[in-house]
């Protein structure tokens, strides 16, 4: 079971993430991502949308598999900027670790 936090997307604005709610989960990003890995980055975007913060922290290492190649952002039909969202989540996780 995961707790959801509807304010999580707003919390991420401080880390440069301001478009996750634009995503309608079409999966184009996951299809074009060279990682071919467990619906990445779509799964992470969904976690942000529903505020599943704990899920993100549990799977945080996956964020650093991202190559920051930009193909997901280039092809996103909603300009949800998945690449920048992953980068913002890295910033969030690093900040949490340093605070701990």
């Amino acid at each position: 079971m995961a707790l959801v936090n509807p304010d999580f997307a707003a919390e991420l604005k401080a880390y440069g993430v301001d478009t996750p709610l634009e995503c309608f989960n079409c999966g184009t990003c996951a299809a074009i991502c060279p990682l071919l890995f467990e619906h990445f980055p779509r799964k992470m975007i969904r976690y942000v949308q529903v505020g599943a913060k704990e899920k993100i922290l549990q799977q945080a290492e996956d964020l650093w598999r991202c190559l920051h190649c930009g193909l997901c952002t280039q092809t996103c039909p909603r300009q949800a900027n998945p690449g920048e969202l992953i980068l913002g989540l890295r910033r969030y996780v690093v900040a949490q670790a340093r605070r701990a």
Partner: peptide
Amino acid sequence: EFTSCCGGPAESVSPALNREI
């Protein structure tokens, strides 16, 4: 605009992932 990544950015955290890409 649609170039494929060579994998280099993964090198610092996972040389194995870099090799795969």
